[in-house]
Simulated assay, not measured.
Amino acid sequence: MAKVLIAGCGDIGSRLGSQLSDAGHQVYGIRRNTDLLPEGIHPIAADLHQDNLDLPNDLDYVFYMASAGKYNDFAYYQAYVAGMKNLLNALAGQPIKRLFFTSSTSVFSQSEGEWVTEDSPAEEHNFSSKRILEGEQLALNADFPATVVRFGGIYGPGRTHIIDQVLKGKAQCMEDVYSNRIHTDDCVGVLSHLMNLATPDTLYIAVDNQPTLSCEVYEWLAEQLSVGTIEHAEPTENSRLMRSNKRLSNARLRATGYEFIYPTYQEGYASLI
């Protein structure tokens, strides 16, 4: 069985750690408040922003799953760049089989509803994408193999913003804007699956099988929840610049043999409502 470190062991990291522990792996989790870690994960109370990380020896796999607590450049630099540098310094000399860096599909700036794959260009179109891409490069340039996983919009238990908005009658959708999502259970499933592959690729897009127009999702939820009609809005030029509008392909991920627990938004949201 493997010796696994999860750096930034929050909600999804804890779920992943529990699954790997149940499978017999030895799992360590870095978190500031280790009281929140579930049983089965060996706690490491530390701040990734500090450069004095004390880590176990002979680790096999490492997951870097930090996220920014605030939406500003400093917070993103700390989470994706400084934390990554500190972790890599602490891992120096270890025979890591693979490092997994959890990233975001927000680094793709396509906005005309086009299909996007791992081969599509990603660019620094704002401070957040700049810092996330910096973190990706640090991982990919490390002294051991690395895989970047770019997740779409994550939803699931505790992540029910759209459902809450629909129930409150405050939901508004933009016409002709595509959205892409993935359930938390599949986030965990994808990472666990990739860890068990002999030679995973260096980059994967992790979204479900069905990019969907946002208004379709809102209307479906309203019907399921027996709520009135959803307000539709025509995207303004400014909102087009600010909002993502692309169809993300998960073909590379599915080609590895991964089968989604919730292949579309309908199965996923039905499990929540």
Rank of each mutant, 00 (worst) to 15 (best):
P157N: 14
E259Q: 11
I30M: 01
F101V: 00
W115E: 13
G135C: 10
D51K: 09
N86H: 08
G10S: 05
A139H: 00
K97L: 10
P200M: 02
T236V: 11
W220E: 12
H161Y: 06
R131M: 14
D35C: 07
L91G: 06
R243V: 08
K130L: 15
T160P: 08
D186G: 11
T147R: 01
G156D: 05
H232L: 15
R32F: 04
E219Q: 15
W220M: 12
A222D: 12
L221G: 14
R98N: 13
Y28C: 02
M174Q: 13
H183Q: 11
E267P: 07
D58T: 07
G93R: 00
T147Y: 02
E231I: 15
V149G: 01
L221V: 12
Y80T: 10
P121A: 01
L248A: 06
D11N: 11
D176F: 04
D176M: 06
W115G: 02
Y71T: 14
R252T: 12
E234A: 15
L59F: 01
H42L: 15
T184S: 13
I205C: 10
P43V: 11
L272H: 09
P38Y: 01
A171T: 12
D35R: 09
P38S: 05
M1D: 10
A92T: 14
H193I: 08
G113P: 01
N86S: 09
G268S: 07
S14N: 07
G135M: 04
H42D: 09
V4K: 01
H232W: 06
Y80E: 10
L91T: 13
